[in-house]
């Protein structure tokens, strides 16, 4: 199983190229509020996470995922469910 810390670290790496303003990235950094990500960038990020772990993150899950920490929890959960 991929551990939560490993998922979080890799998510930070995936976000880095989409973070031109170099907003500090923590568990509580929010995508819309802190990073001002537009929906197209969010789509790119979701796609890269899906490819990274070969999972599916449905669009209807996104409204509940406001911070990097929440996304890491969700991804770790989806990876665990995949087995």
């Amino acid at each position: 199983m991929t551990d939560r810390a490993g998922v979080f670290a890799r998510i930070l790496e995936l976000i880095e190229p989409l973070n031109p303003k170099k907003v500090p990235l923590t568990e509580n950094t929010s995508f819309a509020g802190d990073m001002e990500m537009d929906s197209l960038t969010v789509m790119d990020l979701v796609a890269s996470m899906e490819d990274e772990w070969d999972i599916m993150i449905p669009l209807n899950m996104l409204p509940d995922l406001e911070t990097i920490g929440q996304v890491a929890d969700a991804v770790a959960g989806l990876v665990a469910k995949k087995g």
Binding site: M43, A47, M56, P58, L59, N60
Partner: peptide, 13 residues
């Protein structure tokens, strides 16, 4: 329509 359904939504490029 997607929002109104209870389905899981997947978007492609």
């Amino acid at each position: 329509g997607c929002k109104m359904s209870n389905a899981d939504i997947v978007r492609f490029r």
